[in-house]
């Protein structure tokens, strides 16, 4: 087991747990939670790729040595991508929650195996 790739593997295990919840669970809330966990795993994996050993946050202050900062800052690009990804995840969670509420109003259950009549 290579220790340098262990954090990436743990992030992929988080993704696998989310995938299992999405595929196997029958409760709508559990499926929403599975999609949130998938989101967490993807964000964690993307964040780990940009990290540098003993890295600083990519924020400069006035009394900071420029060369020292360039040699020790972490990658700012994955952080920008994850920042948009987190907020989009919140929007999708709101949409899925609205759908779950309407499905509950119509069928009075969260069980997806009971929702079989797909009539308007």
């Amino acid at each position: 087991m290579n220790l340098q790739t262990l954090p990436f593997l743990l992030a992929m295990i988080v993704v696998a747990v989310g995938l299992y919840a999405v595929v196997c669970k029958k409760n709508l809330i559990k499926i929403i939670v599975g999609i949130i966990i998938l989101d967490y795993g993807a964000n964690l994996f993307l964040m780990l790729t940009g990290y540098r050993e003993n890295g600083l946050a990519p924020i400069r202050t006035a009394n900071m040595n420029a060369d020292n900062f360039l040699n020790s800052s972490v990658d700012p690009v994955p952080q920008a991508l994850i920042l948009t990804s987190i907020v989009i995840g919140l929007g999708t969670v709101a949409l899925m929650t609205a759908l779950a509420i309407r499905i509950y109003e119509k069928y009075e259950t969260f069980d997806i195996s009971e929702i079989k009549q797909l009539k308007g």
């Binding site: 290579n2 299992y20 196997c24 780990l48 790729t49 540098r52 990658d75």
Partner: peptide, 29 residues
Amino acid sequence: AGLVGAGLLVAVAYAALQAMVGFGNPLMA
């Protein structure tokens, strides 16, 4: 089936991660 699929995902990820640069040494460094 779900457990087998999740395990398969982790196994493939483990095989693919061997070709990656290690944690803490990105290409920009």
